[in-house]
Design a protein around this nucleic acid. Structure first.
Ligand SMILES: [Mn+2]
Ligand SMILES: [Mn+2]
Ligand SMILES: [Mn+2]
Ligand SMILES: [Mn+2]
Lengths: 220, 220
DNA sequence: TGTAAAATTTAGTTATGCCTAAATATTTTT
DNA sequence: AAAAATATTTAGGCATAACTAAATTTTACA
């Protein structure tokens, strides 16, 4: 059995790799909140297990075996988030931390039971896709809210799940995945977005908007 | 935060202490499946944390602080077993292993949510009492099945939870907590018990009977 | 193209929690 | 009460996974 630490490394490499190909030691260290020297150590272990490809000073990428494990952990995480949300009524800003710990210890049987209970869902409470049993990730085609223009209407597709204060903030405007809103005004010089959510006006700063991804855009 | 290993030591000391006061290094080692030398090491750590009382060569007992942690872990374990059983439909012979891992990882919030979902239960699927939030253990007054006589009728109160093959065996006779049965015959010379469970006859060996505890005994 | 800055790796340390083998204390037996 | 058997502790190691400080490699830029 792989250690929790190793699983978290693989999961993190997967996520970082999505955005930019090879993953450097420094970026991974930053992401995992450890020192670069520690990352070098774990990288060697993962390489010896053939879970990553690695050349000194040149970053890492997952092998197929490593990717399969990463996706399994991500599947656990997202199923758990949705399960805790739906079955135990946990708030959407609380499920991430709980899932972060549980993801490494649940059995395949428990995974399957949650999946069945939830009706084989394809996304978690923050809109992130849940990989299926075979590691196939449902396609999502959302764009960053920051690229929206005045007058456009759209649906929240996905939000960053790891900052619970941000999630509470979004919750206060009812900005959950599936919620439609319309851009009233984008303030100039990289300014905030004024939006309309179900008749209520809200002002969303750039920094917040960066963590929101949207879908189904219409000009109005 | 206490390590998982330390939590398991405290839980084990609590359980062994229930039966026989002071807990010796060897008994604890046997129970935890580690070597006595490892136990000595952990004992020193737990003593330095003031969670146990200890004198070299003379065994350990829990302090109040240690007992509180032990009961908290046991509460997690038993709530989890019942939750997995009721909410996810896991078989009663599967919940122990799952709970053994989850017990160290769940938050107080999750504990409370499971407790509420289950309606503040007082016993787990194997009949063991669930300590309440304040560490108060519901009183149970069951006696070992091995002390039953011919013709006595009783109700299953509690069974040993950690041997899943044994649990499957008991399940095949419908011997769950709450099930009433009647002793038809106790074979002489420490022989097996022939019992009647809801009209069906079953033969239960001594070794199995040792792990069954009963209640509400009537002579018939 | 050489040097300075930045990133990464190596070397050496720490803490946890397990192990085996040897030493020591306790308990039982004679 | 001493010797033998049993239980426990100490001593020394190993694996994991972090850290700091120093050395090395890459990259950026003058
Ligand atoms: Mn998450
Ligand atoms: Mn994790
Ligand atoms: Mn159990
Ligand atoms: Mn445990």
């Amino acid at each position: 059995m792989l250690s929790q630490a190793a699983e978290d490394y693989l999961k993190s490499i997967y996520k970082l790799q999505e955005k930019g190909g090879k993953v450097s030691t420094g970026v991974l260290a930053e992401f995992l909140n450890v020192k670069p020297a520690s990352v070098t150590g774990m990288i060697k272990k993962l390489k010896s297990m053939k879970l990553i490809k690695y050349e000194r000073y040149h970053g890492v990428t997952l092998t197929n075996a490593g990717k399969a494990i990463a996706l399994e952990v991500i599947r656990h995480h997202r199923l758990l988030e949705l399960y805790l949300f739906k079955a135990l009524g946990m708030p959407w800003d609380g499920v991430h931390d709980e899932a972060e710990k549980l993801e490494h210890v649940i059995s395949e049987d428990m995974e399957e039971r949650m999946d069945a209970y939830l009706g084989y869902p394809t996304s978690d409470p923050h809109g992130s896709p849940i990989p299926d049993k075979n590691g196939v990730v449902p396609k999502t085609a959302s764009i960053p809210m920051t690229s929206l223009q005045d007058g456009q209407s759209c649906v929240v597709a996905e939000v960053n799940d790891s900052d619970s204060a941000l999630l509470r903030h979004l919750g206060s405007f009812n900005l959950y995945p599936g919620t439609r809103f319309r851009v009233i005004e984008v303030a100039p010089f990289e300014g905030p977005f004024t939006i309309d959510v179900a008749g209520q006006q809200a002002v969303i700063g750039r920094e917040v908007a960066k963590h929101i991804f949207v879908d189904d855009i219409h000009d109005t």
